[in-house]
Design a protein around this nucleic acid. Structure first.
Lengths: 222, 222
DNA sequence: TTGTATAATACTGCATCCATAATTATGTAT
DNA sequence: ATACATAATTATGGATGCAGTATTATACAA
């Protein structure tokens, strides 16, 4: 008899599926979410769907306008200007803390992740690069040992994913990103908390700059 | 004809009422939330109540265990050890940024708030002191001009409020808290960002220490 | 008396239904 | 033709009902 360890509720699964569709920009920012259409699509009633939307709303992925419906949140340039420095500070702190707490094995684990990053870059496998990148950052956050810090960062990262340009920009500066990662990893291996902190901090801000350039180019094209 | 500007949904009102009851420790951590009893109490159906619980869950105030019900979140000493340094960093940064952005009028507004804090302390009006304290912190966060920073901090503060000792500890160190506020304000008036930052930072950590002492005393009494 | 198995109870999760408000479509007057 | 008012439609918010599972109570055996 197999006992279900994680008896996830329907609304949770729906929330996750919607998250994926939002991140994939299949539901771009501004899109109105048609409850009954979606419910029908998923073969469920509106009740769990609406519960899922409440969750996504408190994550900031959708915006609920009472009596007006639910829309995928639109993120402004000002929001990005707010979020990136915040993330830079938080992830920077994580890196510093991670250096202080990481065991030998932990560092080796990070090196392994970084290696797949390098490999993905060489092979031009962008999606694999994305994934390894995410994992690298996340692992460092975990090593910092602060559950709440991790939760805050992950929440903010979700919001960043709303911006289509966010993923595109990474593509254009793959090599630079890789270099920055090397710097971060080097500081970690050398056991230098504050070097790791500034390296991570700058890495994030560099991401913001790349995104800003994307926006400029985008605006010019329009 | 008055047009309702903010047509707040029922689930939002319910969520707010529950928040208050949780913060007031009328529903202490660990309490099981009886859906139908509460729904009956509020004279509503379970549907909006359940939606409210979803919101509170993503705020971390309650924990939903699928098929098992909903419980007020219990916060551990480790959580506090995670959250306070995080808050110290965030609010510290806010203070620094606030100094850089505040106008003359802004600073005067802060002074006014601080004055009610002083007055409340003199009069021994603890609830008024609490309120002015909250306002002071919040105003600084607003002055920092970073909406997301503010949102993150407020979310974390909600979680802190789960700990009954949190409010009690402030009571015991009213004078010290006041002194620390004076230091913060002085740095702001002097236009010294980094002094304000460290003052605010230390103020938060000092709060954590006081809480730890409370916990020790509490443990000893038990 | 204690432990286990079974039955009764209670609660959660989801579906369906309905009232109300918002939106769109239609008609009329200027 | 355009603007406004009214009617029809549609979608949201909330209530109710029901199936399935967790929990508690009861009975029985060791």
């Amino acid at each position: 008899m197999t006992h279900r360890i994680a008896p996830t509720a329907l609304y949770q699964e729906v929330a996750e599926r919607l998250r994926q569709r939002i991140f994939a920009h299949e539901l771009p920012p501004g899109t109105w979410i048609d409850e009954q259409k979606l419910a029908e699509q998923y073969g469920i009633s509106r009740t769990p769907l609406r519960e899922a939307l409440k969750v996504l709303a408190s994550e900031g992925l959708v915006t609920l306008r009472p009596r007006r419906g639910c829309y995928v949140t639109e993120i402004s340039a000002e929001d990005l200007d707010d979020i990136f420095p915040l993330m830079a500070m938080l992830e920077g702190r994580c890196a510093a803390e991670a250096v202080r707490r990481a065991t030998r094995a932990d560092v080796e684990g990070l090196e392994a992740i970084h290696e797949t990053l390098e490999q993905s870059a060489r092979d031009g496998r962008i999606d694999a690069f994305f994934e390894a990148n995410q994992l690298f950052h996340r692992r460092i956050q975990e090593l910092s040992g602060n559950r709440w810090m991790l939760s805050v960062i992950q929440d903010l990262r979700k919001v960043l994913k709303l911006s289509r340009l966010h993923s595109l920009s990474l593509e254009g500066r793959l090599q630079q990103s890789l270099d920055e990662h090397r710097t971060i990893l080097a500081a970690i291996k050398a056991g230098q908390p504050s070097a790791a902190e500034t390296a991570m901090h700058d890495h994030l801000l560099s991401g913001r700059e790349a995104l800003a350039k994307m926006q400029d180019a985008h605006a010019k094209a329009a």
